[in-house]
Design a binder for these strands. Sequence first.
DNA 1: GGTTGATTTGGTCAAGTGTCCAAGACAGAT
DNA 2: ATCTGTCTTGGACACTTGACCAAATCAACC
Lengths: 202, 202
Amino acid sequence: MSPDRAPARRPDDEGRRAELIAAASRVIAEHGIAAATTRRIAEEAGVPSGLVHYWFSGKDELLEAVISDTLVSIEDAVRDSRAQPHDDDLAPLHQQLLAAFRIVESDDRGRQLAMYEMTTWALRRPGLAEVARHQYESYRRVAAEGLEAAGVDPESDPALSALVAAVFDGLTLSWLADPDGTDPEAVLRLLAKLVAAARVSS
Amino acid sequence: MSPDRAPARRPDDEGRRAELIAAASRVIAEHGIAAATTRRIAEEAGVPSGLVHYWFSGKDELLEAVISDTLVSIEDAVRDSRAQPHDDDLAPLHQQLLAAFRIVESDDRGRQLAMYEMTTWALRRPGLAEVARHQYESYRRVAAEGLEAAGVDPESDPALSALVAAVFDGLTLSWLADPDGTDPEAVLRLLAKLVAAARVSS
DNA sequence: GGTTGATTTGGTCAAGTGTCCAAGACAGAT
DNA sequence: ATCTGTCTTGGACACTTGACCAAATCAACC
């Protein structure tokens, strides 16, 4: 009732939350979501375990924050990877696809794996299905942006963005599971070729 | 040393194992791999929990068996779905892809989700990475068979099978995470169109 | 300096975990 | 009927889990 006379939180307000989120993120990337216990996360962050339940209502809220956080950083990374219209002799779409996959290859494998773990984890919690839905919606949006940057109109076929996003997601998982048997560059080259050919012939 | 004078196990020898594997499979499909505890699996199978460690060296061996088992049943299902060269007016490849995805749609969502959970789970266990590798190798092989059945030579571009497999895998996960935002049929139609166009123009 | 409320600490709690085992039940061979 | 080795049972073990809390600490303000 009284006017907020700013008893307010310390300056590290969001700082502590971010710290714990980052710690949880590291634990999950390194040892999997199953190993991400509140204790281990607190230990990784270098704080007593009680803090987790002070800054988060529970483990679920923390993990949900990790997912949102990770998703944003993925979006940023993909957007940053946007290949400039190179003077290369490769088709723009081909360049774009390769540039985007390079961030997958350069990133930590554990982090890639973690994203799939978090997706399935979210899909198992009734309240968090929306998070997973948002994630895959975002994938399609980013794919559409990439297509546009490569000079392909994503509106020409609404399924095109979805196709590219699916190829990326499936290819990444295949590459994680079977690195030697998966040739991402060849698959993306083929995809670029197919899209280019269809544009010419239609 | 003594000649096996068949003290041998009861006739339900493999039966018990299969029972437990099936029970574990159901639990995982319904509640996720995290909920697949030895006790819950035993309860689902209707046997005392001690049995699990009599027939399996531990939880890991049981789950590994579940993965192998599930993988085989997926391969079989996809092969069974093989669309006969219909008198339809759809291109054979288009038919094939739709028929294959129909088994995804008709199957339990939990089971689909479980496959991704088991893949990431296997990739986290040092000794079980091979299982995941085999899984994705199998996906490509099945895709190649499907292509061949649709009159497309998988050898024309070795990446073609990998592309189709990746699209399927990514599309399935996208469909699980965002059913309303994902239009599998449109994506597969586009894929079929792209492949067909490239074959004509090359 | 004292007050206030946010933050931190270290510990406790009940519930659940994988694993193991001694005792029993059982089917078939003798 | 007796024996033998397989299978089954129910409980015990040591340990981890998420959650919770009373007390201690701290920074800002009067």
